[in-house]
Design a protein around this nucleic acid. Structure first.
Lengths: 214, 214
DNA sequence: GTAGGCGGAATTGGCTCCATTTTTGGAGAA
DNA sequence: TTCTCCAAAAATGGAGCCAATTCCGCCTAC
């Protein structure tokens, strides 16, 4: 009838302001420390004041922006201390479920993971920064899904968002990207071989972004 | 001058509406499935419409209430699946840092924890349900603080809020409360004795609220 | 008698206006 | 010339108003 006209007539889909602001923070378009003035965001995303406010409130709940009462909001500036703490948490969680990932690693799951690792490789050549980021997310999401704990997947996704502003800038280096890609494949290898210690070692290396050895 | 008059003249401190609503959900005053009409909440907490809306939005982000567009909000009905998953996450995290808790367990820290465990005992006799809940939170917060990871303390606090509605009802039984109190003291004992396997065992039992043995 | 459609009441959700607070720029004095 | 104080402008944050959507009850028609 008249419901499906939108798809072609209005290509600019109405995405949520929260997501748009989140993307700009994650991609580094709005660097850490930037003051997020409501007027500016209103014009930037062509939305109303309450929408801006809700987005800022949500992101401050997620600790992505800092709220200074009667002063304003600014992109969260995370120090090395906190970055290390968050990495520690991820290491504990993700190595803690490595055994379950191996237990549920069916041949089909391994094949799917390999495909997602390949997509990541592909995107590092031809994709935009956001497509690349999404491909990475998709791989890790599928990997964590093997543990059979959906809540855990969501929590790790939230945690990773808290510290994503730094890694994205680290991604700028070609060497780091290629190492990540290699680590993805190595993790799938360890998964297929059901080598628990090796998988745990790789996960820790991957999270801490340490130089790979051996 | 005139700033410190509040303390005595206005005993009704202005708490955040989000916290008040959260408490009513956690204590079971608003059971699962209850429709949260904005006009009711406005009168119930004597606040304005925007405050109610922000509280509902925040709690829906935390998945404590469910948002039905153009219909309203209702208290989230959590299934056993999710409860188990969240317990698993807590077990992994809290047993995963048990070694660090032992490493940082100074005599003073052990003494403070014992005191907090005593406060919990005290509150189970003479405190309100909320004071009891807070005493429990304070003990676990201090215990987790030993790991020296502030982010982790916050994350566990968030996670625990997601599924607290069920446990609170379980608290109704006197036997369960007394077991929790005993487990607190046993955990401090294991910490003092630097018995890592025993501490891990106790933490898992405590989180899963399983019957204690030995 | 029952089912379907219609109208009114109530609730949600967006928007704009306004007060309070902070900041910045300028003017005056040391 | 520089520091301080005051005033004006701008930004935050709150509150109430109004439109849009939904739900419930009633009436009508079959």
């Amino acid at each position: 009838m008249s419901e499906d006209r939108m798809e072609t007539e209005a290509p600019e889909e109405k995405k949520d302001v929260t997501d748009l602001l989140l993307q700009d923070i994650l991609t580094g378009t709005l660097p850490a420390g930037t003051w997020l003035k409501q007027i500016d965001l209103e014009r930037r995303y062509d939305c109303t004041r309450p929408e801006v406010r809700r987005a800022l409130d949500r992101l401050s709940q997620k600790r992505l922006v800092q709220h200074n009462p009667n002063r304003g909001y600014q992109v969260y500036e995370l120090d090395d201390q906190r970055t290390r703490e968050i990495s520690d948490i991820r290491v504990i969680l993700e190595t803690g479920i490595a055994d379950r990932m191996i237990a549920n690693a069916t041949p089909e799951a391994v094949r799917d993971l390999r495909e997602l690792a390949n997509v990541f490789d592909e995107m590092s050549f031809r994709g935009s920064i956001m497509e690349h980021y999404d491909a990475n997310l998709a791989f890790h999401r599928a990997l964590l899904m093997l543990a059979g704990n959906i809540e855990l997947v969501n929590i790790i996704a939230e945690i990773r968002q808290r510290t994503a502003s730094a890694p994205v800038s680290q991604w700028r280096t070609r060497a780091r990207i290629e190492q990540s890609a290699r680590e993805h494949h190595l993790m799938v290898d360890a998964l297929e071989a059901r080598d628990l210690p090796e998988l745990r070692r790789l996960i820790e290396i991957h999270i801490r972004q340490a130089p790979i050895k051996a």
